[in-house]
C-alpha cells in the first residue's frame, strides 16, 4: 500500500511570533522554521505502518518555498522514501493546497493520505477535509488511532464529546491528532541517508493548478495585552463583576 503524507514548514513552536510592522502578516524572515508538529505525527504514523509491513512506500509532499526541501529531508530522515516539493513563491491557502494535493494524488494513486489535522501557523484545519471532498474519498479527521484491514481502515476520532470509532473505505484521507503517536527522534545515520533519497521539485503550473489566493487578509495584529487583575472584596462583588462587566453570566 502506498501512503502519501503531507508536511508543512512552519515557524518553530518555541519561537515568539512577531507581527510585521505593516500588519500584512507575521515575520518569517530569519526565523527558525520546523516541520509542523501535526505533520510530524502523520509521517511517524506512515513510518510505523511501513515498519509493520502495512505500507510499502511513503511519499512525502510539501507545498511552499524552496526551503521546504529541508522539511522533506526531515520527513525522509524519519523514514519517508521520497519527497515531492511543489514550489511556490508566496502564501498558499487551504483550497489551493487541497487542489495541488489532488493533482499529486491523481498522479501517485496512494491508498491512504495522512495529513496533520492543522498547521500551527494559521490553524486553518481545512486542507484535509477539502482534499477528501475534491477527491470524493472518505475522510476521518482528528484521528488518534488507525488500523488498516485490507480495503478498510478502523479509526478512532477525537471529537468534542469523546472518542468516535469509524470504519472508512480505502482510499481515504485521514488527519492526525496529537495522541495518534509520539514521533521518534531522527537518527544520525538516517539524516545521512535522507540526503540521497529522491526529491522531485515541480511548479503548480505543471500540475495545472491555479493557486491564486481566494481570501484576502485585511490586517494582522497582536492580541491585546492582558491588563492587570483586580482584587474583589467578596463573592458578591465577584458575581456582580462577572455579570455586569465581563457579561459572562
Amino acid at each position: 500500500m502506498k501512503v502519501l503524507v503531507t508536511v508543512k514548514r512552519v515557524i518553530d513552536p518555541y519561537v515568539k511570533v512577531r507581527v510585521k510592522s505593516d500588519g500584512s502578516g507575521v515575520e518569517t524572515a530569519n526565523v527558525k522554521m520546523t516541520m509542523n508538529p501535526f505533520c510530524e505525527i502523520a509521517v511517524e504514523q506512515a513510518v510505523r505502518m511501513k515498519e509493520a509491513g502495512v505500507a510499502s512506500e511513503i511519499v512525502a509532499v510539501s507545498i511552499g518555498v524552496q526551503q521546504c526541501q529541508e522539511t522533506l529531508r526531515t520527513a525522509m530522515a524519519m523514514g519517508a522514501d521520497r519527497g515531492i516539493l511543489v514550489e511556490t513563491a508566496g502564501e498558499v491557502q487551504p483550497l489551493a493546497v487541497a487542489k495541488v494535493l489532488k493533482a499529486i494524488v491523481d498522479k501517485e494513486q496512494p491508498k491512504l493520505v495522512i495529513m496533520g489535522k492543522q498547521a500551527i501557523d494559521d490553524d486553518s484545519n481545512q486542507s484535509g477535509q477539502m482534499l477528501a471532498a475534491l477527491l470524493g474519498w472518505p475522510q476521518a479527521a482528528f484521528i488518534s488511532s488507525i488500523t488498516v484491514n485490507g480495503e478498510t481502515a478502523d479509526v478512532t476520532r477525537e471529537i468534542d464529546g469523546g472518542l468516535e470509532k469509524l470504519t472508512v473505505r480505502l482510499p481515504a484521507v485521514v488527519t492526525a491528532d496529537l495522541r495518534l503517536n509520539e514521533p521518534r527522534y531522527v537518527t544520525l545515520p538516517n539524516i545521512m541517508k535522507a540526503k540521497k533519497k529522491p526529491l522531485e521539485v515541480m511548479k503548480p503550473d505543471a500540475l495545472g493548478v491555479d493557486i491564486a489566493p481566494r481570501l484576502t487578509i485585511l490586517k494582522v495584529q497582536e492580541p491585546p495585552k492582558r491588563g492587570a487583575g483586580v482584587k474583589v472584596a467578596d463573592v458578591k462583588e465577584l458575581v456582580a463583576k462577572l455579570r455586569n462587566e465581563a457579561k459572562v453570566i
Binding site: T34, Q69, R73, T74, Y185, L188, M192, K195
Partner: peptide, 18 residues
C-alpha cells in the same frame, strides 16, 4: 564528500532537539 550546509543544518537541528 557528504558534508554540506544542508547536512550541517539537519544534523544541528536534530541534535538541538535531542
Amino acid at each position: 564528500g557528504e558534508v554540506s550546509a544542508g547536512l550541517v543544518d539537519a544534523v544541528l537541528a536534530e541534535a538541538a532537539k535531542f
